[in-house]
């Protein structure tokens, strides 16, 4: 059993609004969240309310914040292979092809060369890009680049996976399929997933809980338990009720 519980204790984050200036922009204000091992958390909230910033802190890229982030009860110290991410902006290496881009995540993995090659291939197949293994990032579409990024995020099998709008650029059909895949992998691997999305339907479909954030400063407005059996049915009346509930939060915010 993996022990990958994540605790966010009073997280606050400020940015200097301009380099060198003393006035500060408060981006996160007192975020409190206990995430159980293997839980699926969806985060929704207006653009600019600090969702990506929060993921950066959890990943360990930015260590200047107030509060504590605990993984299995221990404060995180920088980045670690047990925490993976799919960045909002893909971040593919322009000089590497699709296969090499996915393999980058395994540079420091203990797997043998053959195991690496096999698992890279499998994950590329998972996102349906087997015919584009040799293509370079400038030769593929935005949605395909996003799928490469998803494959790269999954390939390392982190025990906590952070997903920053990973399906935003995809067509409805591909998106629905990849949502299903994410759910399968989550269920099979018992990994903790934190998914940031602008798609309320997606948030309710995948999350055990949906965290609604509100901006200026970014804080948690509400946390909804999604107590529906999986796989969920989007036309189920309870599903629709929960989704409308989250949507109404948005309507009030704007």
């Amino acid at each position: 059993m993996l022990n990958n519980s994540l605790t966010l204790e009073n997280i606050s984050k400020r940015f200097a609004s301009r380099p060198g200036s003393t006035s500060q922009l408060q981006v996160l204000d007192n975020i409190q969240l206990n995430i159980a091992p293997g839980e699926f958390i969806s985060i929704v909230g207006a653009s600019g309310c600090g969702k990506s910033t929060l993921l950066r802190l959890i990943l360990g890229l930015d260590e200047e914040y107030d509060g504590r982030i605990l993984l299995d009860g221990k404060p995180i110290d920088g980045t670690g292979l047990e925490r993976g991410i799919v960045f909002q902006d893909h971040r593919l290496f322009p000089w590497l092809n699709v296969e090499q881009n996915v393999a980058v995540a395994l540079k420091n993995s203990p797997l043998s060369a053959k195991e690496k090659r096999d698992t890279v291939r499998e994950h590329i197949e998972l996102v349906g890009l087997q015919d584009f293994i040799d293509a370079y990032p400038h030769q593929i579409s935005g949605g395909m680049a996003q799928r490469v990024a998803i494959a790269r995020g999954l390939v390392n099998r982190p025990s906590v996976l952070l997903l920053d709008e990973p399906l935003g650029a995809l067509d409805a059909l591909t998106r629905a399929r990849l949502q299903g895949e994410l759910q399968n992998i989550w269920a099979k691997e018992k990994i903790t997933m934190i998914l940031v999305t602008h798609d309320v339907d997606e948030a309710v479909f995948l999350g055990d809980r949906v965290v609604v954030m509100q901006p200026n400063p970014g804080r948690i407005r509400r946390i909804l338990d999604i107590d529906l059996p999986r796989p969920r049915n989007r036309s189920d009346s309870r599903f629709i009720a929960l989704r409308d509930d989250v949507l109404s939060d948005f309507a009030e915010l704007h």
Binding site: L2, T119, L126, G128, E181
Partner: peptide
């Protein structure tokens, strides 16, 4: 690495067989 899977016990990340793969792009 939190997941302490020894390399020899390596299980593929993806559930074999029952995964509905995307059709090739």
């Amino acid at each position: 690495r939190a997941q302490t899977v020894a390399p020899e016990q390596y299980v593929p990340a993806l559930p074999k067989g029952n995964v509905q793969r995307l059709p090739p792009a």
